[in-house]
Structures are given as structure tokens and as C-alpha cells.
């Protein structure tokens, strides 16, 4: 079946509607911050966000038309990047702080009680500063986040039967549609053509930094799990294990 053809404007409207709500940790953070309590809070929040992320992905036009295995692979590959992109967006107006949720922000000092976390913290702060410099617009942000999902894994279904090929070509068309939407969003700013394609390049280059921080974060979380620093359960555990399996 053909994908419904949406104009860039209509596509952006649909992915804006797909945005998850604010997610609260809803825990008492008044006690002392230790490695265990910080990790517990972060993983607890991530687990909640993951459930909303799946709902978000399903609302991206065309995503549920991909074959189910491809949907699974894409989400398994991109989940931490998507979480980090959201974190950067929430933190953009708070220089030097990371706003994990409306009720959980961490300073560098608080982050430093988790072994190995400061390195990732600093990378996230640096990437957030870049987002601030670029004055990322909400429409550009939602496009980039959808692109992270759709671009997360180029080697999808390994067998090349008819259905898999069809799903792959659908995915490429979705990525093209998302690129058109991003170009449209950039064009709204009234920049010259030259400035527009420079901005497009700057925005897309952000994605390679996010991939890098996400890989670092994934290693860190895996390490924390191995040391039994934090009990992982449910969806987060499943997503971490799947990612480690894909990357090994």
C-alpha cells in the first residue's frame, strides 16, 4: 500500500502532536545524593520515558507500516539517543545544568557522585551548548528526533525477501520525507539559501555527536548493570540488553 503523501507542513504537524508529555520522576530527592540514588533516579525515569517513546514512534506517520522486526530494531538502536536529544532540548535554557525531568535536574557536582558519569555529563553539556548556539527551533527539534529513529540502523532485516525489501524502501522514503520537512522548517527562518544549507549541515552534524554520547552512555549503563550498582528491570533492561547484543 502507498504511504499517504503528506506535505512537509502536515508531516511536522503530525510529529508535533506525537511529542510525549512532560514526564516526572515523582520521587523524594531530598535525601543525600549517592551513586546508587542518582542511578536509581535516572534509570527509573528512563524506564518511564521509554514507554512514552514507543507511543511516540507509533505516531510518526509511516512507522507502523514498516515490518515489525524493523520497528523493533530501530527502537532498540536509537532509544538512548532519543532520550538524550529530549534531555538536551529540556536543558537548553538552563546553561550548565541537565534537566532530566521537571523534578530532576543534576549539576555537574551531583553527577560526579556516579563513577564515570562526569565524562558523559560534560559531553551532554557541550552538545546542549551547541543546540543553544544554533537556536534550535521546536519544529527542527522534532524533525531531528524522528530522523534519529529512522536513521538508527541501516542494516535492518537480514534476509532479503520481498517484505523486507519493501519495508526498507518504505523506510528510505520516510527518511526523505523527514528531510524535506527539516528543510521546510529551516526555510521558514528567512535565511538566505547559503545560510539555509549551512544550517542544515550544522543540524545534521549534531546527530553524530549525539550518537557518540549515546554509545558512551550505553557502555556506562552496561557497566553499572555488571557491577550491580543499580537494579535494572522491565523495558530498560530489555532495551539495554538488545543494544549490547546488536553492537557485539
Amino acid at each position: 500500500p502507498q504511504l499517504p503523501v503528506l506535505t512537509p507542513e502536515a508531516l511536522i504537524a503530525r510529529i508535533m502532536e506525537a511529542e510525549p508529555p512532560d514526564i516526572y520522576l515523582m520521587r523524594d530527592m531530598s535525601g543525600p545524593m549517592t551513586e546508587a540514588t542518582v542511578m536509581m533516579s535516572l534509570t527509573n525515569l528512563a524506564d518511564k520515558e521509554l514507554v512514552h517513546m514507543i507511543t511516540w514512534a507509533k505516531k510518526i506517520p509511516g512507522f507502523v507500516d514498516l515490518n515489525l522486526l524493523d520497528q523493533v530494531h530501530l527502537l532498540e538502536c536509537c532509544w538512548l539517543e532519543v532520550l538524550m536529544m529530549g534531555l538536551m532540548w529540556r536543558s537548553v535554557d538552563h546553561p550548565g545544568k541537565l534537566i532530566f525531568s521537571p523534578d530532576l535536574s543534576l549539576s555537574r557536582e551531583e553527577g560526579s557522585c556516579v563513577q564515570g558519569f562526569v565524562e558523559i555529563y560534560d559531553m551532554l553539556i557541550a552538545a546542549t551548548s551547541r543546540v543553544r548556539e544554533l537556536k534550535l527551533q521546536r519544529e527542527e527539534y522534532v524533525c531531528l528526533k524522528a530522523m534519529i529513529l529512522l536513521n538508527s540502523n541501516m542494516c535492518l532485516s537480514s534476509s532479503d525477501g520481498g517484505e523486507e525489501l519493501q519495508s526498507r524502501s518504505r523506510l528510505l522514503r520516510l527518511l526523505d520525507a523527514m528531510t524535506d520537512a527539516l528543510v521546510w522548517a529551516i526555510a521558514k527562518s528567512g535565511l538566505s539559501f547559503r545560510q539555509q544549507y549551512t544550517r542544515l549541515a550544522h543540524l545534521l552534524m549534531l546527530l553524530s555527536h549525539i550518537r557518540h554520547v549515546s554509545n558512551k552512555g550505553m557502555d556506562h549503563l552496561h557497566c553499572m548493570k555488571m557491577k550491580n550498582m543499580v537494579p535494572l528491570y522491565d523495558l530498560l533492561l530489555e532495551m539495554l540488553d538488545a543494544h549490547i547484543m546488536h553492537s557485539s
Binding site: 514507543i54 532498540e76 522491565d234 538488545a242
Partner: peptide
């Protein structure tokens, strides 16, 4: 990936 599959395949209410 049981939980992920379950969430992907449930119909939105």
C-alpha cells in the same frame, strides 16, 4: 524483546 513487542503491537486506545 517481549515488553517492546507488546507495546508496539497494542492498539492505541
Amino acid at each position: 524483546h517481549t515488553k517492546l513487542l507488546q507495546l508496539l503491537t497494542t492498539k492505541p486506545e
